[in-house]
Amino acid sequence: MHIAEGFLPPAHAIGWTVAAAPFVVHGARAVVREVRENPESTLLLGAAGAFTFVLSAIKLPSVTGSSSHPTGTGAGAILFRPPVMALLGTVVLLFQALLLAHGGLTTLGANAFSMAIVGPWAGYGAYRLTRGLGGGLLPGVFAGMAVADLATYVTTSLQLALAFPDASSGFAGAAAKFLGVFAITQIPLAIGEGLLGVLLFRVLTVNARPELERLGVLKS
């Protein structure tokens, strides 16, 4: 989902940066507030950030013969609500843009919008929906993690289609092409990410029960 440096026309690059900025600022304030009001959250916040850091560094092969990476943003969105991930996800993207030449500064806004904003919100929505329908914590985590991953890549496809519409079939045709690159490859990765999320939350429910109860993830 990393749109490469310089690969969005200037108007799109600026537009996505302007669109993402308020979410990231709001996310930064959410992180500061969480740490100030609940200092005991710092450990779990670190875990959520670290989880995204690891997963987005790993390129995994998929059944389509392509490789891609998971995003890991669902875990933090479920634990601390999505705004926190707007900051943590953007920090990861900035690290990769500056040190790894992966993604870019001109495309940071667009990449943050897909991975740090749409992904976490969509994943959080899927988690809440699963819980609301009577699903347990772990099915909710699976759904949330997998949807956060997939939604990120669908957003990237749509962003690219907006910037590079097809000469004959327009936005829809271009969207189909970019979704063809990203979406199917991403399905096994999303499932794998869902399973990893379940593993993480199984550890947390045993070892961080007081925090999960305070955050409302587990009933006390």
């Binding site: 749109i3 390129k59 092969p61 013969g65 891609s68 890549y153």
Partner: peptide
């Protein structure tokens, strides 16, 4: 299969969609 990264494939599709497109900014490193 070579397991090309999807990010690189997307760049290829961009250049198919708009063969005249030139990246206007390059990586800081």
């Amino acid at each position: 299969a070579e397991y090309t990264g999807t990010d690189n494939q997307a760049t290829t599709v961009i250049l198919q969609q708009d063969p005249g497109y030139r990246p206007w900014f390059s990586s800081v490193i």
